[in-house]
């Protein structure tokens, strides 16, 4: 009887490890974003022992095929097999590491209550971590593109080519995070930012994943875009991301 109930509580899913917390002597609580079950918090028993069967599979930024058992408050990881060892290459480069930490913290905040968009968020996180580990683009561009697209998926899509308030086609020269992006001259509230036109173009390219345009951008617009993305993110999340201030930018 007990075996059957154990089996019925077992499920399998693929997930990315967002963060870990130490628990007791040698265990860890793993926060995962899974493909089908959204965000899960599960206990990995004995994972901190050097002889643990889990090895590096349950380290942050890794993607794994997991077997879990649902529990009352926390699930339990019973088996794990590596699918994407992204953490290995990310930890070998400090700039990538700080960007990946910000990506995972954002994903955790965006999916802790919203289960509906978790599948789409999962795809975005995997894409960003994979791009970071393979050094496809500059880490800061991958981070900012991820942040904009993750917010858009969560329902806070910014607008960069038309006024966020009246819809007048751009390009516009003002940016206002509470209103949702670029604003025209008439709608512009006091205190709006006035970014350079190249910054607005870069933001639009990052949102639409126009990588040739984003890769060709200069350092100045990248830095300005990063500041605007951070302000937009923090306004909509209504909380500060701890990892964002540690992100290393070139």
């Amino acid at each position: 009887m007990s075996n059957r109930s154990f089996a019925s509580r077992t499920y399998r899913d693929q997930g990315v490890i967002l963060r870990t917390h130490k628990l007791g002597e040698a265990d860890r609580i793993i926060t995962l974003l899974t493909k089908q079950h959204g965000q899960i918090r599960a206990v990995a028993k004995g994972v901190r022992r050097t002889s643990s069967k889990f090895g590096a599979v349950l380290e942050p930024f890794m993607v794994a095929d997991l077997q879990l058992v649902s529990g009352r408050s926390l699930d339990i990881v019973t088996q794990a097999q590596m699918v994407g060892p992204y953490g290995r290459d990310i930890a070998a480069d400090y700039t990538k590491y700080t960007s990946a930490a910000a990506i995972c913290e954002t994903a955790e905040k965006l999916t802790d209550a919203d289960g509906e968009s978790a599948g789409a968020q999962y795809g975005l996180v995997i894409g960003a971590l994979s791009a970071l580990s393979r050094s496809v683009h500059a880490p800061e561009l991958i981070l900012d593109s991820y942040l904009l697209r993750a917010l858009a998926t969560a329902g806070w899509a910014p607008s960069f080519d038309q006024c966020a308030r009246c819809g007048e086609p751009g390009p516009h020269t003002a940016f206002n995070a509470p209103l949702g992006g670029a604003v025209c001259h008439d709608c512009r509230p006091p205190g709006s930012a006035s970014p350079a036109p190249q910054t607005m173009q870069l933001l639009a390219a990052l949102l639409s994943a126009d990588w040739p345009a984003a890769d060709a951008s200069a350092t100045g617009p990248r830095r300005e875009a990063a500041g605007l993305v951070a302000s937009y993110l923090q306004w909509h999340l209504e909380r500060t991301l701890k990892s964002l201030k540690h992100v290393e930018r070139v």
């Binding site: 050097t50 889990f54 090895g55 590096a56 599979v57 380290e59 097999q81 590596m82």
Partner: peptide
């Protein structure tokens, strides 16, 4: 690899 383990159970990162 940890002493006392089986190679087949080592994950890719550890074995690498």
């Amino acid at each position: 690899l940890p002493v006392g383990g089986d190679l087949e159970y080592a994950d890719e990162v550890t074995l690498g």
